[in-house]
Design a protein around this nucleic acid. Sequence first.
DNA 1: TATTGTTATACTCTATAACTATA
DNA 2: TATAGTTATAGAGTATAACAATA
Lengths: 150, 150
Amino acid sequence: MSSIPDLTAHLGYLLRMVSNAVSQEFARKVAREGVTVAEWVMLRALFGRDAITPTALAGEMGMTKGAISKLAERLLDKGLIERTDNATDKRGHSLSLSPRGADKVPILAALADTNDAAFFAVLSGDQRDHLQGVLRDIIGKHGLTVVPVD
Amino acid sequence: MSSIPDLTAHLGYLLRMVSNAVSQEFARKVAREGVTVAEWVMLRALFGRDAITPTALAGEMGMTKGAISKLAERLLDKGLIERTDNATDKRGHSLSLSPRGADKVPILAALADTNDAAFFAVLSGDQRDHLQGVLRDIIGKHGLTVVPVD
DNA sequence: TATTGTTATACTCTATAACTATA
DNA sequence: TATAGTTATAGAGTATAACAATA
């Protein structure tokens, strides 16, 4: 008789809620280091690897070329990444961390460590491991690119 | 010797990746119904309950009054919610679903159902249950408000 | 004065599409 | 023509802070 739908929270909904909460806290912390979460993701993607073209990076990060271009410009302004002209093809170039950017990554990684530890301290070690396993499972099966390959 | 930090993906990072993937897919689907994800969250929050003040809603949704005001204005324009003047205090008013909005919620909920089912089909039933349990645990222990109380 | 809500302003994030320079 | 990348434009999402009306 009633048309009240079953509003039991969906997994995607719960996931978004938790994800937003962690990310917002993290965003405040990295802001003190002068970067945004998206910038951190790009820095992380560039760490410990060869220079990469914007287009390739766009593919890995699941963003458009335009978005990468804008993000890269801000990181260039902040002196955290560098552009290197392509020797053979004058249209392209490569992006890589600057020395300052490379120094920054461990600092930001440490912030991520403490933020994660604090936020997920409400879980048991087993729960954390399980959660990590399930998330990696989803990522693998959907072919999502874990940008910073580890 | 090396200064390479341990970039093992953090839980917050994995969570954000998965959450973004689900939400982006869902966003495309609800867009066909003419609403955004944030609008769906507000509609869901208003469903099956008494009218609520913008300030109270802001508290529940973890947003500022200004953000709620902007979101509400769009939903008013779309005819999905209604404003009712407060009888006793002329400063305030209450928000509630319009008949059209109330009709829309089940449709959007069904979209969320199918989107969730499709996305999380890569998991076993046990994994899904476990994931839901862990997320609810985090939400409860952090006192995050599951907007649409169920 | 304090509170309710709107508005002004600003910035991030992101997409689409037009454009430039090169191939 | 096709490709690499930038830029222009636009809109969502969100915050802060100034503001108007009322209490």
